[in-house]
Design a protein around this nucleic acid. Structure first.
Length: 454
RNA sequence: GGCCCUAUCGUCUAACGGUUAGGACAUCGCCUUCUCAAGGCGGAAAUCAGAGUUCGAUUCUCUGUAGGGUCACCA
């Protein structure tokens, strides 16, 4: 619908591999992808790797992996590398020199590395008006830009020239980038006109911001700006995609949960927000939980298996544990935290605890033993893996009659050894009849062994 | 400082110029409950300020204020 060129939509994602994949860049890539995909086009991946000092292969790798992880399709296998197109730039520079849109200029080299001769654009000094899909029409007077430098020499193009040549060579029709690109646009349009390139359509997206509304940057927030961090924390790519999309865009309805396909269908670049959005981890966690609920059981399970390896648990136990974990985590690394804090270790082995804590605060030893034995009897009448309801039905009446705290607390405590845990019915359902009986018997024995027994 | 952009609950945001300014996250309260988690229900919470246009302004205009961005022989 925005295909003013009456040809296939081509967008590009051109990171420079000088740092870990930035979350803001990830969103830019995503918006490019959503827009392009819904218009049946392609996003082309370009590595702006001409900065030899700062570019590193591991960064390029990180960006590629991040993109794949998010499910954003691009030409991963044959990226366009700026470093491989030296002769192309040279060709354009020569042409510009020849037709007079650029010229060699003598300079006073005052600083280290400065040349005494550079190539400048012959700036016609006019007003440029361009269309921005997000911000509307923008008009800039380019006179103040002067005859800016486009190359250090015939073989050393500068950023703006390289970008314009690349975009042209790659057939880019739409440029969707961060709002800092706004200041680059007039220069780039001037260069386009000089080399006779068609002008693409622009869309400048607002930034993702820090808590203090400054541009989200490594300096201020450390690792939380890199996609890598979220991958390592065990966030779901679908959740990140969903959150990132809602950060600056919304469908205009109250719906919030979207898959990538839903986003491609519903995304509307004209509805992208003009102002920046603060990155909110709480909300991301909520999105992740919602996506966790949608995750196929098998995937959730294999993640639990991975993270509980040290207990070497039975596969069936993991399956029974899954709903409990789902209730308690917002991201997979929370499982590690639960283990670390010894909040779920009793699922994998007999609990250790302070024996006198088995006794409900309002009762005594003999009552506790009586209740435990009664509960034991009830459990013994169940099958090995009863449902939670079956367990509850068998014990509930007795517990209500004798006092739920008096019955259920000792039962739960003897199963988990924790003051805080899921309810005893759930515990029995997960542990199974045999293990539960063992733990209840053990608890009774321990109480009996208590000194000062009345 | 010049130039540019932006401005609705704490946060993300919705609202043909007419709405009790809506939703979500977070927060608070209640319910559920042996404890925790989850869940259910409910509350508090916003149009930056001042003019103007209009019968009527969150919405249009101007000014101010605040915040951000940007001013390379980096990308």
């Amino acid at each position: 619908m925005f295909n003013f060129f009456k040809r296939k939509v081509v967008t590009r994602f051109p990171p420079s591999p000088t740092g870990w994949f930035h979350i803001g860049n990830a969103r830019t890539a995503l918006f490019n992808y959503l827009f392009t995909k819904q218009n049946g086009g392609v996003v082309k991946f370009r590595l702006e790797d001409t900065d030899k000092e700062r570019s590193k292969p591991e960064y390029a790798q990180d960006i590629l992996e991040g993109l794949k992880w998010l499910g954003i399709e691009m030409n991963y296998d044959n990226p366009y590398r700026q470093s491989e197109h030296g002769s192309t730039y040279q060709k354009y520079i020569e042409a510009m020199l020849k037709n007079g849109t650029a010229y060699v200029s003598k300079e006073n080299a005052t600083e280290m590395g400065q040349r005494s001769e550079v190539i400048r654009l012959k700036n016609p000094g006019k007003k440029i008006k361009y269309k921005d899909l997000i911000r509307g029409d923008i008009e800039v007077d380019t006179t103040e830009l002067g005859d800016f430098i486009i190359a250090k020499s015939i073989t050393e193009p500068l950023y703006h020239l390289a970008v314009v040549v690349d975009d042209y060579e790659m057939g880019v029709t739409h440029i969707i980038r961060g709002e800092d690109g706004i200041y680059n646009t007039p220069r780039q349009i001037l260069i386009q006109e000089a080399i006779g390139a068609k002008r693409p359509l622009y869309a400048h997206m607002p930034f993702i911001l820090n808590e203090d509304r400054s541009k989200l940057s490594k300096r201020n927030q450390g690792e939380i700006v890199s996609l890598k961090y979220y991958r390592e924390k065990g966030y779901l790519p679908s959740a990140l995609v969903n959150y990132l999309a809602m950060c600056g865009w919304n469908p205009g309805t109250e719906r919030e949960i979207f898959s990538m396909d839903d986003l491609i269908k519903n995304f509307d670049i004209l509805k992208v927000q003009k102002s920046g959005a603060i990155f909110n981890t709480e909300k991301l966690n909520w999105f992740n939980r919602e996506h966790l609920k949608l995750l196929p059981e098998s995937e959730f399970i294999s993640e639990i298996v991975k993270r509980t390896k040290k207990f070497n648990p039975d596969k069936n136990l993991i399956e029974r544990l899954r709903p409990i974990l789902l209730e308690r985590i917002s991201k997979f690394s929370d499982i590690d935290a639960l283990i670390e804090n010894q909040e779920i270790d009793y699922f994998f082995g007999a609990p250790t605890y302070e024996v006198k804590k088995i006794i409900w605060k309002e009762t005594d030893i003999s009552t506790t033993i009586a209740h435990l034995n009664k509960a034991l009897e009830k459990v013994q009448n169940l099958k090995e893996y009863p449902t939670i309801d079956e367990i509850k039905n068998s014990i509930w009446e007795y517990a209500t009659e004798k006092g739920r705290g008096a019955v259920l607390w000792p039962l739960r405590y003897s199963l988990s050894g924790k003051e805080k845990s899921p309810d005893p019915f759930t515990l029995i359902a997960v542990l199974g009849k045999t293990e539960s009986i063992k733990r209840i018997k053990e608890a009774v024995k321990k109480i009996n062994d208590l000194p000062n027994k009345k």
